[in-house]
Design a protein around this nucleic acid. Structure first.
Lengths: 109, 109
DNA sequence: CCTTTATTTAACAATAATGTTAAACAATGG
DNA sequence: CCATTGTTTAACATTATTGTTAAATAAAGG
């Protein structure tokens, strides 16, 4: 699978998305801190982290017996680049066809 | 599931992603045109379209016996807004921690 | 060394996603 | 009306995803 689709896939899971948000907020955290408060086993979180790593969304470094996790820019950048390249489709939301259809679909049939 | 995660999920499938790209390129197309060239049954594509619709990524209008599909801005916008709100994580890729870890991980151990 | 702490991997069960074919529907044209 | 065309839904099999617990690994401390 390509980078972009892998990133989308990784972020489509609520647990993984929340891990990414937490790392964005807090910077760098040991796996243990990412397990806490998620009502899920450490094993499950560990595997989510593996998926995020494979998607280039987080990175790991070893510090003693801990694995420190932090955001990696690659995955995000893939999404950002695609999003920006399709700017026209969300920037000017008031496009002709869009409007037409929105009006049609709201007709009381 | 919330809008953003649903959009990520919908786009994480290669077939659906390619449908979105085709509609971005071509504007509005009947379902039949979206089926062609994808080596998959019409039923399968129809269900992918349903997922894309539920995710606010495409919209449908009825024209005679055809269903015309086109891009809807809602889903895209959810992704764009999130991406932009996290700008700092992909814009300045040369952040301190990122660099440190990238160097560590490339050590020949 | 041996135990504890931190984290990952393996094996497995439950659920979700995806494709197939067949049947259902709806509009169109004889 | 009835057959045809365009598309969706249903039923089903296959494969993927996700969580669980138990076992494996690895560093740290006594």
């Amino acid at each position: 699978m390509n980078t972009l689709l892998t990133a989308f896939s990784a972020l489509s899971d609520a647990t993984r998305f929340s891990i990414v948000e937490q790392l964005m907020q807090d910077g760098e955290l040991p796996a243990g801190d990412l397990i806490e408060g998620r009502g899920m086993s450490g094993a499950a979180i560990s595997r989510h982290l593996k998926v995020l790593r494979a998607a280039g969304l987080v990175q790991q470094r070893v510090q003693g017996s801990q694995r420190m996790y932090s955001i990696q820019t690659a995955g995000l950048r893939a999404i950002a680049e695609w999003t920006i390249s399709k700017r026209q489709f969300w920037e000017n939301s008031l496009d002709r066809l869009n409007d037409l259809i929105e009006r049609e679909n709201s007709w009381p049939n």
